[in-house]
């Protein structure tokens, strides 16, 4: 482990402890780590966006000679002046920072929203709406060469009627009374199972992160031995 690795490990360990100190109560150490994280993460995503998207896709496309030798992909390519359009729209978006001309940013936002609306309208219709309905159209009675598969038939019924019941719960054009009320109540049960499963997975993901952090702190403590 180099000296730099050790310094990074120590800073990381200190930051982890500062964040964990919030479990006791809000305190200056937590506030320090929280504010530092806000600043660093904003700059991190900004640098990532500039390095991964804006320079290779915009700058290198408009002015390939300027990045020759830096970006290999841009060598010997002709300028693509169409990319001046996103540059212009991006500059319009930045006008948001100047209150007098902030309204110009709406034009760039309008292009973003228009593109998203147009593509999402068709994409969600195809991938989520139609595909999900198609996947629900399965046989309710499953017959195998060995005969009737009762358990699989029941499970398929749970899936098909579960989707219908849960959809009925979201259908507000009919009052949820009588038969409709009963179906919608069954829909709530199906949704509760789905929420319970999601909750279980969320807890597991957070606990695995916590184990990772405790492991990291263990590594940090071991570094004491290396120094001593």
């Amino acid at each position: 482990m180099t000296m730099w690795d050790m310094i990074v490990l120590w800073i990381g360990g200190a930051m982890t402890l500062m964040i964990f100190s919030f479990l006791y109560k809000d305190n200056p150490f937590y506030k320090f780590a929280e504010h530092l994280f806000v600043g660093v993460s904003a700059a991190f995503w900004m640098v990532k966006a500039i390095q991964t998207t804006m320079i290779p896709n915009m700058w290198a496309a408009i002015w390939p000679k300027s990045v020759t030798g830096i970006l290999h992909a841009a060598q010997h390519t002709e300028p693509n002046y169409v990319r001046l359009i996103p540059l212009g729209l991006g500059l319009l978006l930045l006008s948001r920072l100047m209150p007098r001309i902030a309204w110009l940013s709406r034009w760039a936002m309008a292009v973003l929203i228009g593109f998203t609306s147009g593509t999402y309208l068709v994409r969600y219709l195809q991938s989520d709406f139609i595909a999900q309905i198609r996947s629900t159209l399965i046989p309710l009675v499953v017959v195998t060469p060995q005969g009737l598969d009762v358990i699989q038939s029941l499970l398929n019924c749970v899936l098909v009627f579960g989707v219908l019941c849960a959809l009925m719960y979201f259908f507000f054009s009919l009052e949820h009374r009588g038969v409709v009320g009963g179906i919608s109540r069954a829909g709530i049960w199906v949704l509760m199972v789905a929420f319970g499963a999601s909750f279980g997975y969320t807890v597991m993901a957070r606990i695995s992160l916590l184990i990772g952090r405790i492991d990291y702190l263990g590594e940090w403590l071991q570094s004491f031995g290396k120094i001593l």
Partner: peptide, 14 residues
């Protein structure tokens, strides 16, 4: 690609 570039500008704006 334009959309990705504009997302980059959005980070700069942020």
């Amino acid at each position: 690609v334009w959309f990705d570039i504009l997302k980059g500008f959005a980070f700069v704006l942020g």
